[in-house]
Nucleic acid binder design. Structure first.
Lengths: 209, 209
DNA sequence: GGCACTATCACATAATGATGTTAGTAGGTC
DNA sequence: GACCTACTAACATCATTATGTGATAGTGCC
């Protein structure tokens, strides 16, 4: 019987997932919080779940930072990152920080359930696109890079675009000036050979980065 | 032994798919064209394949129109639509026109291969997101619509946005004025509760339409 | 016939985005 | 030290997008 916890700031998604997972015969979902901080609170007083589903982009502490802390305090909790980002940095940061799985957010509920079951059986659930990235990363680093060499910072900008933010909001989120955002975006366009936000978002969400 | 044909205007994708499928033990891919017209030409002189993989957005005749014609002339060819669009209209138009499967374009090559095998075994391959749409469409039409009720035309506009086009190019593609495009976009924003191209593209590519 | 909805087009204005140019700082490499 | 890349930033300018308001016309429904 798997006990599952959820950390996800989108209320609708959070409730939907909790209700669905709680309905399953072989699992229960006693806790779903909207921030890492809340989950840490919960863990100090209640018995901790076996599995945590965690978003990366969260208000307050990010999912990756949060995971590091949780992994240190409660090393037997398995964590699945559940996010829209598929840039290598975030994936590898997550895996290095101790994630047991990494699913893209458009994954359907039954697939998430399958992933949890797979995890309980000792597997490492991840979306096909992610799996390919991980494999190619360890395999053929001599091959021609399909990777588009975006820097860490550039990926942050792309993630902002994917979240539908304006330059101004991206600047706020990353705490830099709007002109810097512009500068990064120019470099991104050059690297990807595109010339609009739209194309960047499309490329990103199709996993072409 | 499955004979597979491909209709896809992107040269890179076309060649990649053909090479991959041709490499498989249980299938061969003797023909890959960039338009429906070319494929029809081919079919008049050569033995026809069992399965066709077909894009929707094609230069000249669209994949859906093309499929209707091919289905009439060669009813024993099974057709899998392979496209980035997941709006209900296109899906149902395709299925009504006789498609045997409908895969989203970010589907990996092994998954496409699996889909072809599934098809040869009498199955109906489709991406999970698509399957959900089809099921919900026939099942629970009393439920709260997660469908965003975009009209046919509005979806055309969204598809233009997803393809990275400007208002002007969308107007050209659909042969309407740029002000009409603007009007549609305003309605789309209202329906989806967003206020930028970026958010529409993101929603669309995540299958949230 | 009237109503609701869709699709079409126009004019106007403010906000945002795309692109050119220039430049300082920090860290790493030869 | 000279050189390179990543990150930061400012200023300018034109293009595109977002939004308000208003209008005509066709379809389907009751």
């Amino acid at each position: 019987m798997a006990q599952v916890g959820i950390v996800e700031d989108n209320k609708k998604i959070r409730q939907l997932m909790q209700r669905y997972l709680d309905m399953q015969e072989d699992m229960s979902c006693p806790v779903a919080t909207e921030s890492v901080e809340e989950m840490l609170d919960y863990l100090t007083t209640y018995p901790h779940p076996n599995v945590l589903l965690m978003d990366i982009q969260l208000p307050g502490m990010s999912g990756i930072e949060g995971m590091k802390i949780i992994q240190q305090k409660y090393p037997d909790i398995e964590i699945i990152m559940l996010t829209v980002y598929h840039d290598s940095h975030k994936i590898f940061d997550s895996l290095k920080a101790g994630a047991s799985g990494y699913l893209l957010k458009h994954t359907s509920l039954p697939e998430i359930k399958d992933a949890i079951e797979l995890l309980m059986q000792g597997g490492a659930p991840m979306s096909p696109q992610i799996a390919r990235k991980v494999i190619t990363h360890f395999n053929d680093r001599g091959q021609k890079q399909q990777e588009s060499n975006l820097t860490n910072r550039e990926q942050d900008i792309v993630n902002g675009l994917v979240d539908g933010l304006s330059y101004k909001l991206i600047a706020d989120r990353l705490d830099i000036s709007i002109d810097t955002v512009r500068a990064h975006i120019r470099n991104i366009y050059k690297k990807l050979h595109v010339n609009s936000k739209a194309e960047v978002i499309a490329k990103s969400l199709r996993g072409e980065l």
